[in-house]
Design a protein around this nucleic acid. Structure first.
Lengths: 120, 120, 120, 120
DNA sequence: GTGGTCTAGACCACT
DNA sequence: GTGGTCTAGACCACG
Protein backbone atom coordinates (compact mmCIF):
# COMPACT_ATOMS: atom_id res chain seq x y z
CA UNK A 1 0.00 0.00 0.00
CA UNK A 2 1.45 3.32 -1.04
CA UNK A 3 -0.10 6.59 -0.01
CA UNK A 4 0.66 10.06 -1.23
CA UNK A 5 0.45 13.32 0.61
CA UNK A 6 -0.63 16.11 -1.67
CA UNK A 7 0.22 19.68 -1.10
CA UNK A 8 -2.20 22.34 -2.09
CA UNK A 9 -2.09 23.44 -5.70
CA UNK A 10 -0.55 26.90 -6.15
CA UNK A 11 -3.02 29.64 -5.43
CA UNK A 12 -2.90 31.05 -8.92
CA UNK A 13 -3.76 27.63 -10.37
CA UNK A 14 -6.75 27.39 -8.07
CA UNK A 15 -7.84 30.81 -9.23
CA UNK A 16 -7.43 29.77 -12.85
CA UNK A 17 -9.58 26.69 -12.27
CA UNK A 18 -12.34 28.55 -10.56
CA UNK A 19 -12.55 31.39 -13.00
CA UNK A 20 -12.51 28.86 -15.82
CA UNK A 21 -15.38 27.06 -14.15
CA UNK A 22 -17.29 30.32 -13.81
CA UNK A 23 -16.84 30.90 -17.53
CA UNK A 24 -17.84 27.46 -18.75
CA UNK A 25 -20.80 27.37 -16.39
CA UNK A 26 -22.04 30.64 -17.82
CA UNK A 27 -21.67 32.36 -14.47
CA UNK A 28 -19.44 34.71 -16.41
CA UNK A 29 -21.03 35.38 -19.77
CA UNK A 30 -19.10 35.65 -23.07
CA UNK A 31 -17.90 39.21 -23.48
CA UNK A 32 -18.60 40.09 -19.87
CA UNK A 33 -16.17 42.47 -18.22
CA UNK A 34 -14.28 41.07 -15.26
CA UNK A 35 -13.77 43.12 -12.11
CA UNK A 36 -10.41 44.89 -12.10
CA UNK A 37 -7.35 42.90 -11.20
CA UNK A 38 -7.02 44.87 -8.00
CA UNK A 39 -10.63 44.28 -7.01
CA UNK A 40 -10.44 40.58 -7.73
CA UNK A 41 -7.31 40.41 -5.63
CA UNK A 42 -8.93 42.26 -2.76
CA UNK A 43 -12.13 40.21 -2.88
CA UNK A 44 -10.20 36.98 -2.75
CA UNK A 45 -7.53 38.17 -0.38
CA UNK A 46 -4.61 37.41 -2.64
CA UNK A 47 -1.83 39.63 -3.90
CA UNK A 48 -2.64 41.51 -7.12
CA UNK A 49 0.38 39.89 -8.76
CA UNK A 50 -0.99 36.45 -8.00
CA UNK A 51 -4.33 37.34 -9.50
CA UNK A 52 -2.55 38.88 -12.45
CA UNK A 53 -0.66 35.64 -13.01
CA UNK A 54 -3.90 33.66 -12.99
CA UNK A 55 -5.53 36.01 -15.47
CA UNK A 56 -2.44 35.93 -17.68
CA UNK A 57 -2.76 32.16 -17.81
CA UNK A 58 -6.40 32.42 -18.80
CA UNK A 59 -5.48 34.94 -21.47
CA UNK A 60 -2.78 32.75 -23.01
CA UNK A 61 -5.27 29.91 -23.18
CA UNK A 62 -7.71 32.22 -24.92
CA UNK A 63 -10.52 32.26 -22.38
CA UNK A 64 -10.22 35.95 -21.63
CA UNK A 65 -8.72 38.92 -23.44
CA UNK A 66 -7.50 42.32 -22.38
CA UNK A 67 -8.46 45.77 -23.53
CA UNK A 68 -5.66 47.96 -22.32
CA UNK A 69 -6.70 50.62 -19.84
CA UNK A 70 -10.21 49.29 -20.07
CA UNK A 71 -10.33 45.93 -18.40
CA UNK A 72 -10.36 42.22 -19.02
CA UNK A 73 -13.21 40.43 -20.72
CA UNK A 74 -14.45 36.89 -21.16
CA UNK A 75 -13.83 35.75 -24.71
CA UNK A 76 -16.77 36.11 -27.06
CA UNK A 77 -15.72 32.92 -28.83
CA UNK A 78 -18.50 30.62 -27.71
CA UNK A 79 -17.00 27.72 -29.59
CA UNK A 80 -13.83 28.09 -27.55
CA UNK A 81 -15.84 28.10 -24.35
CA UNK A 82 -17.88 25.09 -25.39
CA UNK A 83 -14.64 23.30 -26.22
CA UNK A 84 -13.33 24.00 -22.74
CA UNK A 85 -16.62 22.93 -21.21
CA UNK A 86 -16.52 19.59 -23.02
CA UNK A 87 -12.91 19.04 -22.00
CA UNK A 88 -13.80 19.78 -18.40
CA UNK A 89 -16.71 17.37 -18.46
CA UNK A 90 -14.59 14.67 -20.03
CA UNK A 91 -11.87 15.09 -17.43
CA UNK A 92 -14.29 15.01 -14.53
CA UNK A 93 -16.03 11.97 -15.94
CA UNK A 94 -12.82 10.06 -16.50
CA UNK A 95 -11.69 10.83 -12.99
CA UNK A 96 -15.03 9.70 -11.60
CA UNK A 97 -14.98 6.41 -13.46
CA UNK A 98 -11.42 5.77 -12.32
CA UNK A 99 -12.33 6.44 -8.71
CA UNK A 100 -15.29 4.11 -8.88
CA UNK A 101 -13.27 1.44 -10.63
CA UNK A 102 -10.61 1.62 -7.94
CA UNK A 103 -13.12 0.47 -5.35
CA UNK A 104 -14.52 -2.17 -7.59
CA UNK A 105 -17.53 -0.53 -9.21
CA UNK A 106 -17.94 -1.06 -12.94
CA UNK A 107 -20.18 0.82 -15.38
CA UNK A 108 -23.28 -1.10 -14.33
CA UNK A 109 -22.83 -0.22 -10.66
CA UNK A 110 -22.17 3.38 -11.60
CA UNK A 111 -25.58 3.66 -13.19
CA UNK A 112 -27.12 2.42 -9.98
CA UNK A 113 -25.41 5.03 -7.88
CA UNK A 114 -26.06 7.86 -10.29
CA UNK A 115 -29.77 7.16 -10.61
CA UNK A 116 -30.18 6.36 -6.92
CA UNK A 117 -29.39 9.88 -5.81
CA UNK A 118 -31.07 11.56 -8.71
CA UNK A 119 -34.13 12.73 -6.86
CA UNK A 120 -32.30 14.35 -4.03
CA UNK B 1 -18.28 35.63 -8.84
CA UNK B 2 -16.79 34.41 -5.61
CA UNK B 3 -13.70 32.24 -5.52
CA UNK B 4 -12.16 30.43 -2.62
CA UNK B 5 -8.56 29.57 -2.06
CA UNK B 6 -8.23 26.25 -0.29
CA UNK B 7 -5.24 25.16 1.63
CA UNK B 8 -4.35 21.53 1.57
CA UNK B 9 -6.36 19.25 3.83
CA UNK B 10 -4.45 18.24 6.95
CA UNK B 11 -2.07 15.40 6.22
CA UNK B 12 -3.69 13.00 8.68
CA UNK B 13 -7.06 13.43 6.95
CA UNK B 14 -5.45 12.59 3.62
CA UNK B 15 -3.96 9.47 5.18
CA UNK B 16 -7.31 8.43 6.61
CA UNK B 17 -8.95 8.76 3.21
CA UNK B 18 -6.33 6.75 1.45
CA UNK B 19 -6.16 3.95 3.94
CA UNK B 20 -9.93 3.78 3.95
CA UNK B 21 -9.83 3.51 0.19
CA UNK B 22 -7.29 0.71 0.39
CA UNK B 23 -9.62 -1.18 2.72
CA UNK B 24 -12.84 -0.78 0.75
CA UNK B 25 -11.07 -1.59 -2.49
CA UNK B 26 -9.81 -4.83 -1.00
CA UNK B 27 -6.23 -3.72 -1.34
CA UNK B 28 -6.13 -4.32 2.40
CA UNK B 29 -8.08 -7.49 3.15
CA UNK B 30 -10.39 -7.95 6.17
CA UNK B 31 -8.33 -9.15 9.11
CA UNK B 32 -5.03 -8.25 7.46
CA UNK B 33 -2.32 -6.96 9.74
CA UNK B 34 -1.13 -3.44 9.02
CA UNK B 35 2.57 -2.55 9.02
CA UNK B 36 3.71 -0.92 12.25
CA UNK B 37 2.93 2.72 12.76
CA UNK B 38 6.62 3.46 12.60
CA UNK B 39 7.01 1.65 9.29
CA UNK B 40 3.94 3.26 7.80
CA UNK B 41 5.26 6.67 8.83
CA UNK B 42 8.66 5.96 7.35
CA UNK B 43 7.26 4.59 4.09
CA UNK B 44 5.15 7.65 3.56
CA UNK B 45 7.62 10.17 4.91
CA UNK B 46 5.25 11.36 7.55
CA UNK B 47 5.74 12.02 11.20
CA UNK B 48 4.79 8.93 13.28
CA UNK B 49 2.45 11.07 15.37
CA UNK B 50 0.58 12.09 12.24
CA UNK B 51 0.24 8.48 11.15
CA UNK B 52 -0.87 7.51 14.64
CA UNK B 53 -3.58 10.15 14.52
CA UNK B 54 -4.82 8.81 11.19
CA UNK B 55 -4.99 5.25 12.48
CA UNK B 56 -6.75 6.38 15.64
CA UNK B 57 -9.40 8.00 13.48
CA UNK B 58 -9.86 4.77 11.52
CA UNK B 59 -10.15 2.80 14.72
CA UNK B 60 -12.78 5.17 16.09
CA UNK B 61 -14.90 4.61 13.00
CA UNK B 62 -14.45 0.87 13.32
CA UNK B 63 -12.50 0.13 10.18
CA UNK B 64 -9.44 -1.15 12.00
CA UNK B 65 -8.85 -2.49 15.49
CA UNK B 66 -5.84 -2.90 17.73
CA UNK B 67 -4.54 -6.03 19.36
CA UNK B 68 -2.34 -4.81 22.15
CA UNK B 69 1.30 -5.79 21.72
CA UNK B 70 0.42 -7.41 18.43
CA UNK B 71 -0.43 -4.68 15.97
CA UNK B 72 -3.33 -3.16 14.13
CA UNK B 73 -5.68 -5.10 11.87
CA UNK B 74 -8.32 -4.38 9.30
CA UNK B 75 -11.77 -5.15 10.70
CA UNK B 76 -13.15 -8.58 9.84
CA UNK B 77 -16.64 -7.17 9.73
CA UNK B 78 -17.29 -7.37 5.99
CA UNK B 79 -20.70 -5.81 6.38
CA UNK B 80 -19.08 -2.78 7.95
CA UNK B 81 -16.64 -2.54 5.08
CA UNK B 82 -19.37 -2.93 2.50
CA UNK B 83 -21.29 -0.19 4.24
CA UNK B 84 -18.32 2.13 4.02
CA UNK B 85 -17.79 1.19 0.40
CA UNK B 86 -21.36 2.07 -0.49
CA UNK B 87 -21.14 5.35 1.40
CA UNK B 88 -17.94 6.20 -0.44
CA UNK B 89 -19.48 5.42 -3.81
CA UNK B 90 -22.56 7.47 -2.98
CA UNK B 91 -20.44 10.42 -1.90
CA UNK B 92 -18.26 10.31 -4.99
CA UNK B 93 -21.29 9.98 -7.23
CA UNK B 94 -23.11 12.88 -5.62
CA UNK B 95 -20.04 15.03 -5.93
CA UNK B 96 -19.70 14.07 -9.56
CA UNK B 97 -23.30 14.88 -10.38
CA UNK B 98 -22.99 18.20 -8.60
CA UNK B 99 -19.86 19.09 -10.53
CA UNK B 100 -21.48 18.25 -13.85
CA UNK B 101 -24.65 20.09 -12.93
CA UNK B 102 -22.65 23.19 -12.05
CA UNK B 103 -21.46 23.46 -15.63
CA UNK B 104 -24.86 22.70 -17.04
CA UNK B 105 -24.80 18.96 -17.70
CA UNK B 106 -27.86 17.02 -16.62
CA UNK B 107 -28.31 13.25 -16.21
CA UNK B 108 -28.74 12.69 -19.93
CA UNK B 109 -25.48 14.45 -20.80
CA UNK B 110 -23.72 12.54 -18.05
CA UNK B 111 -24.55 9.25 -19.69
CA UNK B 112 -22.99 10.50 -22.90
CA UNK B 113 -19.75 11.42 -21.23
CA UNK B 114 -19.56 8.25 -19.17
CA UNK B 115 -20.09 5.93 -22.09
CA UNK B 116 -17.94 7.98 -24.44
CA UNK B 117 -14.71 7.24 -22.58
CA UNK B 118 -15.69 3.75 -21.57
CA UNK B 119 -13.36 1.90 -23.91
CA UNK B 120 -10.22 3.70 -22.97
CA UNK C 1 3.27 62.57 -41.93
CA UNK C 2 2.67 60.61 -38.77
CA UNK C 3 5.48 59.53 -36.53
CA UNK C 4 5.40 57.15 -33.62
CA UNK C 5 7.52 57.15 -30.54
CA UNK C 6 8.23 53.64 -29.37
CA UNK C 7 8.99 52.77 -25.83
CA UNK C 8 11.35 49.97 -25.09
CA UNK C 9 9.86 46.50 -25.13
CA UNK C 10 9.46 45.02 -21.65
CA UNK C 11 12.70 43.57 -20.37
CA UNK C 12 11.32 40.05 -20.13
CA UNK C 13 10.25 40.18 -23.77
CA UNK C 14 13.73 41.25 -24.79
CA UNK C 15 15.14 38.36 -22.82
CA UNK C 16 12.73 35.96 -24.49
CA UNK C 17 13.78 37.21 -27.91
CA UNK C 18 17.46 36.92 -27.27
CA UNK C 19 17.34 33.50 -25.69
CA UNK C 20 15.15 32.33 -28.54
CA UNK C 21 17.73 33.65 -30.98
CA UNK C 22 20.48 31.84 -29.12
CA UNK C 23 18.51 28.61 -29.46
CA UNK C 24 17.63 28.89 -33.12
CA UNK C 25 21.16 29.96 -33.98
CA UNK C 26 22.53 26.87 -32.29
CA UNK C 27 24.38 28.99 -29.75
CA UNK C 28 22.37 26.98 -27.26
CA UNK C 29 22.25 23.39 -28.41
CA UNK C 30 19.18 21.13 -28.14
CA UNK C 31 19.14 19.50 -24.74
CA UNK C 32 21.73 21.88 -23.35
CA UNK C 33 21.30 22.91 -19.76
CA UNK C 34 20.75 26.60 -19.15
CA UNK C 35 22.51 28.41 -16.32
CA UNK C 36 20.33 28.65 -13.23
CA UNK C 37 17.64 31.29 -13.14
CA UNK C 38 19.54 33.13 -10.46
CA UNK C 39 22.79 33.08 -12.43
CA UNK C 40 21.12 34.26 -15.59
CA UNK C 41 19.52 37.06 -13.62
CA UNK C 42 22.83 38.07 -12.07
CA UNK C 43 24.72 37.93 -15.36
CA UNK C 44 22.20 40.15 -17.06
CA UNK C 45 21.54 42.38 -14.09
CA UNK C 46 17.82 41.78 -13.95
CA UNK C 47 15.64 40.60 -11.12
CA UNK C 48 15.33 36.81 -10.84
CA UNK C 49 11.57 37.12 -11.17
CA UNK C 50 11.94 38.93 -14.46
CA UNK C 51 14.23 36.21 -15.79
CA UNK C 52 11.83 33.61 -14.45
CA UNK C 53 9.01 35.24 -16.37
CA UNK C 54 11.02 35.15 -19.58
CA UNK C 55 11.89 31.49 -19.12
CA UNK C 56 8.28 30.67 -18.29
CA UNK C 57 7.27 32.21 -21.60
CA UNK C 58 9.85 30.11 -23.44
CA UNK C 59 8.61 27.04 -21.65
CA UNK C 60 4.98 27.60 -22.57
CA UNK C 61 6.01 28.00 -26.19
CA UNK C 62 7.90 24.73 -25.96
CA UNK C 63 11.43 25.94 -26.58
CA UNK C 64 12.74 24.96 -23.18
CA UNK C 65 11.60 22.54 -20.49
CA UNK C 66 12.18 22.21 -16.80
CA UNK C 67 13.50 19.35 -14.73
CA UNK C 68 12.49 20.22 -11.24
CA UNK C 69 15.36 20.71 -8.85
CA UNK C 70 17.70 20.05 -11.74
CA UNK C 71 17.53 22.98 -14.06
CA UNK C 72 16.10 24.15 -17.32
CA UNK C 73 17.04 22.69 -20.69
CA UNK C 74 16.71 23.58 -24.32
CA UNK C 75 14.12 21.35 -25.97
CA UNK C 76 15.51 18.32 -27.76
CA UNK C 77 12.78 18.63 -30.36
CA UNK C 78 14.85 19.77 -33.33
CA UNK C 79 11.78 20.01 -35.50
CA UNK C 80 10.30 22.52 -33.08
CA UNK C 81 13.49 24.55 -33.18
CA UNK C 82 13.68 24.45 -36.95
CA UNK C 83 10.08 25.59 -37.08
CA UNK C 84 10.91 28.57 -34.89
CA UNK C 85 13.98 29.32 -36.96
CA UNK C 86 11.97 29.39 -40.19
CA UNK C 87 9.35 31.62 -38.59
CA UNK C 88 12.03 34.00 -37.41
CA UNK C 89 13.63 34.15 -40.85
CA UNK C 90 10.26 34.75 -42.48
CA UNK C 91 9.44 37.56 -40.08
CA UNK C 92 12.80 39.26 -40.51
CA UNK C 93 12.56 38.95 -44.29
CA UNK C 94 9.06 40.35 -44.45
CA UNK C 95 10.09 43.27 -42.27
CA UNK C 96 13.09 43.91 -44.47
CA UNK C 97 11.09 43.89 -47.67
CA UNK C 98 8.55 46.23 -46.14
CA UNK C 99 11.24 48.64 -45.02
CA UNK C 100 12.84 48.66 -48.46
CA UNK C 101 9.50 49.06 -50.16
CA UNK C 102 8.67 52.04 -47.96
CA UNK C 103 11.61 53.95 -49.41
CA UNK C 104 10.83 52.87 -52.92
CA UNK C 105 13.02 49.83 -53.48
CA UNK C 106 11.39 46.86 -55.15
CA UNK C 107 12.61 43.25 -55.38
CA UNK C 108 15.04 44.05 -58.19
CA UNK C 109 16.74 46.84 -56.22
CA UNK C 110 16.89 44.61 -53.18
CA UNK C 111 18.99 42.09 -55.05
CA UNK C 112 21.43 44.85 -55.94
CA UNK C 113 21.87 45.92 -52.35
CA UNK C 114 22.13 42.40 -51.01
CA UNK C 115 24.78 41.30 -53.47
CA UNK C 116 26.65 44.60 -53.30
CA UNK C 117 27.67 44.15 -49.70
CA UNK C 118 28.18 40.44 -49.94
CA UNK C 119 31.96 40.47 -49.90
CA UNK C 120 32.33 42.60 -46.83
CA UNK D 1 25.41 33.16 -23.77
CA UNK D 2 25.34 36.88 -23.17
CA UNK D 3 22.20 38.91 -23.44
CA UNK D 4 21.75 42.63 -23.38
CA UNK D 5 18.83 44.64 -22.18
CA UNK D 6 18.36 47.73 -24.30
CA UNK D 7 16.49 50.78 -23.24
CA UNK D 8 14.58 52.70 -25.83
CA UNK D 9 16.53 55.04 -28.08
CA UNK D 10 16.13 58.69 -27.11
CA UNK D 11 12.92 60.12 -28.47
CA UNK D 12 14.64 62.76 -30.59
CA UNK D 13 16.71 60.10 -32.37
CA UNK D 14 13.52 58.22 -33.18
CA UNK D 15 12.05 61.39 -34.60
CA UNK D 16 15.15 62.03 -36.71
CA UNK D 17 14.95 58.54 -38.16
CA UNK D 18 11.32 58.79 -39.05
CA UNK D 19 11.47 62.23 -40.58
CA UNK D 20 14.53 61.13 -42.55
CA UNK D 21 12.55 58.15 -43.77
CA UNK D 22 9.68 60.40 -44.80
CA UNK D 23 12.11 62.47 -46.85
CA UNK D 24 13.92 59.67 -48.63
CA UNK D 25 10.66 57.89 -49.33
CA UNK D 26 9.32 61.01 -51.01
CA UNK D 27 6.57 61.30 -48.45
CA UNK D 28 8.07 64.73 -47.85
CA UNK D 29 9.03 66.20 -51.22
CA UNK D 30 12.21 68.21 -51.89
CA UNK D 31 11.57 71.85 -51.08
CA UNK D 32 8.36 71.05 -49.19
CA UNK D 33 7.63 73.21 -46.18
CA UNK D 34 7.45 71.37 -42.88
CA UNK D 35 4.69 72.07 -40.35
CA UNK D 36 5.80 74.38 -37.56
CA UNK D 37 7.85 72.90 -34.76
CA UNK D 38 5.00 73.57 -32.40
CA UNK D 39 2.51 71.74 -34.62
CA UNK D 40 4.84 68.82 -35.18
CA UNK D 41 5.33 68.55 -31.44
CA UNK D 42 1.62 68.67 -30.77
CA UNK D 43 0.74 66.17 -33.48
CA UNK D 44 3.22 63.68 -32.11
CA UNK D 45 2.66 64.39 -28.45
CA UNK D 46 6.23 65.33 -27.91
CA UNK D 47 7.82 68.26 -26.12
CA UNK D 48 8.60 71.10 -28.57
CA UNK D 49 12.20 71.14 -27.36
CA UNK D 50 12.55 67.49 -28.29
CA UNK D 51 11.15 68.11 -31.75
CA UNK D 52 13.41 71.14 -32.13
CA UNK D 53 16.42 68.98 -31.28
CA UNK D 54 15.43 66.44 -33.91
CA UNK D 55 15.05 69.09 -36.59
CA UNK D 56 18.36 70.67 -35.63
CA UNK D 57 20.00 67.32 -36.17
CA UNK D 58 18.42 67.01 -39.61
CA UNK D 59 19.56 70.50 -40.49
CA UNK D 60 23.12 69.74 -39.43
CA UNK D 61 23.18 66.76 -41.77
CA UNK D 62 21.77 68.88 -44.57
CA UNK D 63 18.43 67.20 -45.11
CA UNK D 64 16.40 70.24 -44.15
CA UNK D 65 17.15 73.96 -44.05
CA UNK D 66 15.64 76.93 -42.30
CA UNK D 67 14.35 80.15 -43.81
CA UNK D 68 14.27 82.56 -40.96
CA UNK D 69 10.78 83.74 -40.11
CA UNK D 70 9.40 81.51 -42.82
CA UNK D 71 9.77 77.95 -41.67
CA UNK D 72 11.76 74.82 -42.28
CA UNK D 73 11.99 73.12 -45.66
CA UNK D 74 13.17 69.83 -47.04
CA UNK D 75 16.40 70.30 -48.98
CA UNK D 76 16.03 70.74 -52.72
CA UNK D 77 19.30 68.91 -53.27
CA UNK D 78 17.98 65.71 -54.81
CA UNK D 79 21.45 64.24 -55.06
CA UNK D 80 21.85 64.65 -51.33
CA UNK D 81 18.55 62.90 -50.73
CA UNK D 82 19.41 60.10 -53.10
CA UNK D 83 22.70 59.69 -51.28
CA UNK D 84 20.88 59.36 -47.98
CA UNK D 85 18.42 56.96 -49.50
CA UNK D 86 21.19 54.70 -50.77
CA UNK D 87 22.94 54.81 -47.41
CA UNK D 88 19.74 53.89 -45.67
CA UNK D 89 19.12 50.97 -47.99
CA UNK D 90 22.69 49.78 -47.57
CA UNK D 91 22.43 49.94 -43.80
CA UNK D 92 19.13 48.12 -43.69
CA UNK D 93 20.42 45.46 -46.07
CA UNK D 94 23.62 44.91 -44.12
CA UNK D 95 21.65 44.59 -40.91
CA UNK D 96 19.29 42.13 -42.55
CA UNK D 97 22.09 39.96 -43.88
CA UNK D 98 23.76 39.98 -40.49
CA UNK D 99 20.58 38.94 -38.74
CA UNK D 100 20.01 36.09 -41.17
CA UNK D 101 23.63 35.01 -40.95
CA UNK D 102 23.43 34.91 -37.17
CA UNK D 103 20.79 32.20 -37.37
CA UNK D 104 22.64 30.32 -40.06
CA UNK D 105 21.08 31.52 -43.28
CA UNK D 106 23.47 32.37 -46.12
CA UNK D 107 22.79 34.34 -49.32
CA UNK D 108 21.17 31.36 -51.02
CA UNK D 109 18.68 30.84 -48.20
CA UNK D 110 17.95 34.54 -48.16
CA UNK D 111 16.78 34.44 -51.74
CA UNK D 112 14.38 31.68 -50.83
CA UNK D 113 12.83 33.65 -48.01
CA UNK D 114 12.63 36.88 -49.97
CA UNK D 115 10.94 35.38 -52.97
CA UNK D 116 8.70 33.13 -50.88
CA UNK D 117 6.72 35.99 -49.41
CA UNK D 118 6.85 38.17 -52.46
CA UNK D 119 3.26 37.74 -53.52
CA UNK D 120 1.72 38.58 -50.22
C1' DG E 1 21.96 23.86 -4.59
C1' DT E 2 17.55 23.81 -8.09
C1' DG E 3 12.98 25.94 -9.63
C1' DG E 4 8.30 27.65 -7.97
C1' DT E 5 5.38 30.66 -5.57
C1' DC E 6 3.83 34.58 -3.03
C1' DT E 7 3.76 39.22 -1.09
C1' DA E 8 4.51 44.15 -0.76
C1' DG E 9 5.16 48.05 -3.01
C1' DA E 10 6.52 50.93 -6.72
C1' DC E 11 6.40 53.12 -11.33
C1' DC E 12 4.64 53.54 -16.05
C1' DA E 13 1.34 54.43 -20.00
C1' DC E 14 -3.14 55.25 -21.38
C1' DT E 15 -7.75 57.77 -21.10
C1' DG F 1 -9.21 54.75 -12.82
C1' DT F 2 -7.27 50.57 -15.99
C1' DG F 3 -3.59 46.88 -16.92
C1' DG F 4 1.56 46.01 -17.30
C1' DT F 5 6.03 45.68 -15.54
C1' DC F 6 9.73 45.49 -12.34
C1' DT F 7 12.21 44.94 -8.00
C1' DA F 8 13.26 43.15 -3.43
C1' DG F 9 12.87 39.70 -0.49
C1' DA F 10 10.84 35.73 1.49
C1' DC F 11 9.41 30.83 1.93
C1' DC F 12 8.71 26.19 0.10
C1' DA F 13 9.75 21.37 -1.89
C1' DC F 14 13.03 18.47 -3.70
C1' DG F 15 17.38 16.10 -3.16
Amino acid sequence: MTLSVENAAPIYIQLVQQIKEAIISGDLQPGERLPSVRDLALQNKVNPNTMQKALLELETTGLIYTERTNGKFVTTDKVRIEQERAAFAAAVSAQYRAQMARIGFGPADILTYLTKGENK
